Computed example of a mutant assay.
Amino acid sequence: MAAGNIVTDTWEWLADGANWSGPGGVWERLGEHVFLTVACLALACAIALPLALWLGHIGRGGALAVNLSNIGRAVPTFAVLVLLGLTPLGRHGDWPTVIALVLFAVPPLLTNAYVGMREADRGVVEAARGMGMSGPQLLWRTELPLAYPLIMTGVRSAAVQVVATVTLAALPGGGGLGRVITAGFRTYDTPQVVAGALLVAALALAVEGVLVLADRLLDPMRRRRRALRAAPAAPPTQSATEPTEGAVP
């Protein structure tokens, strides 16, 4: 099939309202995809972030946890998905998919949050400790705001990876936009396959955009930077070499 025909046919497939509505339509698959993404990302954050923040705060055991989580990246997500599908969990709906994707999302969240905590400006941290802040106050009011940029980078990375990987859920019979792609493969419908891939890519970009906006709105240092920009500049001091008014040269 010529490239021009594929582009035209893909556009026609996307413009056909019948492909979007009804059981198995794009809207239904999109809802499944978003639900799985949000559920898996929320569970991964609930597991990885508290652990990483605590280990980064106490400065012990974090390197081991990060290395173990990075080893988990070497395990193919699809292999975990298939193995879990063969266990009794396979009879419980989307649980195999959720567990596999949570395991896939934990490493970038854990690594970025831990590194962000350990790379927080130690001078600022020690100054806060010298002011009498308790351990929890030091964590929430000093270390966490300083680590926030790297934490959000990990969240964005994990979210985009999960959006792309949820597509694999369709192979063992799960939901999501991957079902659009697998249905196209079964019927040798190349425009449908391309359309499904474009939809996944568009969703990943949309999720990235939403998280970038959330990053800017939730940044705990945002108000401080705005206050500093709004503060009037200090008047320049008179140079010691310049003669004062009325002085005899």
Rank of each mutant, 00 (worst) to 15 (best):
A202K: 05
T187A: 15
N19W: 02
L36Q: 06
A74K: 00
T111V: 10
L81A: 00
V98D: 01
T182G: 01
A63V: 13
T77Q: 01
G61Q: 05
L211F: 11
A201Q: 08
A74V: 13
V26S: 01
T241P: 00
G178S: 05
L177W: 09
T142S: 14
A227K: 07
E32I: 05
T165L: 14
R73I: 13
E242C: 12
R216F: 01
V207C: 11
T182K: 06
A233N: 02
A230R: 12
L213A: 15
T165Y: 05
V80N: 03
P145V: 13
S21L: 11
V115F: 10
L199H: 06
M1N: 10
L14H: 03
W95I: 15
L83H: 04
T153M: 12
G174M: 09
V82K: 03
A63L: 12
Q161Y: 04
D121C: 12
L146S: 08
T167S: 14
L30D: 02
G22D: 04
D219W: 07
W20D: 01
A44Y: 07
G17L: 12
T244M: 15
R60T: 07
P249I: 15
G175I: 08
V115C: 01
V102Q: 11
C45Q: 12
H57L: 14
I47A: 14
V38Y: 08
V212H: 09
R29E: 06
A197V: 12
W140F: 15
M131S: 15
N70H: 06
Y148R: 08
R186N: 12
P23V: 10
A158I: 03
L171M: 13
A169C: 04
R60N: 00
T97P: 00
I58N: 09
N112E: 04
L14G: 01
G4P: 02
L211A: 08
R226F: 00
E242V: 15
R141F: 09
L203V: 06
V248C: 13
L213I: 08
V162N: 00
T182F: 15
P220F: 10
L168D: 00
I71W: 05
A169V: 02
L199S: 07
R179M: 11
A44E: 03
A183E: 13
V155P: 03
V162Y: 02
L218T: 13
L228G: 01
G174Y: 04
P236W: 02
W20C: 02
P108G: 02
A240P: 07
T237E: 14
H92D: 11
A52Y: 10
L43R: 04
V162A: 03
A46T: 09
A42H: 05
V38M: 10
L211D: 04
R73F: 04
G85I: 02
S69R: 03
F35I: 09
G123W: 13
G85F: 10
A159W: 01
R179K: 13
V80R: 02
P50Y: 12
A158F: 02
R91V: 04
E28W: 07
R216L: 07
G154L: 08
P23K: 11
L53C: 13
A234N: 00
L217A: 14
L213H: 10
P136F: 10
V75S: 01
I151A: 11
M221K: 13
L139F: 06
L43V: 14
A231W: 00
A240H: 10
P88V: 07
A147V: 11
V82P: 00
